[in-house]
Amino acid sequence: MEERRYRSASGAPIALRRRQHSASCRELAVRCPRLQLRSLSAVTSAVWLAAYGLFVLSENSMVLSAAIFITLVGLIIYLHFVKIDQESLLVIGSLGIQVTSSYASGKESTTFIEMGRVKDVVINEAIHMQKVIYYLCILLQDPADPQGVSEVVPLFQSSKPRLDCLIEVYKSCQEILEQRKTAPQSSGIK
C-alpha cells in the first residue's frame, strides 16, 4: 500500500491511496481532509450570532432554541448526506468495478458495475460551476449498439482531484482493463 499527496481542483489537500491485492485487482482511494473544528465552530458561531441579533430585535427566546436546533440538525444532515470523507474505486479485472463513497458519519454507498458493461475508463473535461475541470469517468456500453455509450458515470465527484492525480488513477485502471481486452482476443484468434 502506498499513499501520495495531491490537491483537489479547489486547492484542498487530498491523499491517494493505492492498494494492490493481486495482478488484476486494485483498490484506489481518494481521502479528503476531515471536517475541521475551526470551520465547524466558525459556522456555528455565525448562526448563533445571527440568532442572537434576531433575539435582541424580537425579544422572543424561541429564536435561540430554534438556532440550536437548526445547527444540530444541519450538522447531522451535513455529516450524513453531504460530507464525503473517502471515495474509493475497486477494480477487479474479471469481475467489474466497485465505486464506494464513505460519508463522514460512517455511512457508505456502493455501486457495482459489471466488467461486461464497462466500455472504458477515460479522463474528460467539463464545465463545473464557474470552473473547467478534468474528471475521471466510466463509460458504459450500450447493449443495443456495441460502438455507442449508454451512460457516463463520473468518479470522485466530491473530492475532484487535479489532473496529476487523475492520470495516476487512470493509468492503474487502464493496466487492468488492458489485461481484460487482450485476454479474450488472443484466445479468439487461436
Partner: peptide
Amino acid sequence: MTPDSIIDVA
C-alpha cells in the same frame, strides 16, 4: 479564491 497555480494547464 483560486490562485492561478491551482488551475490545471489544459
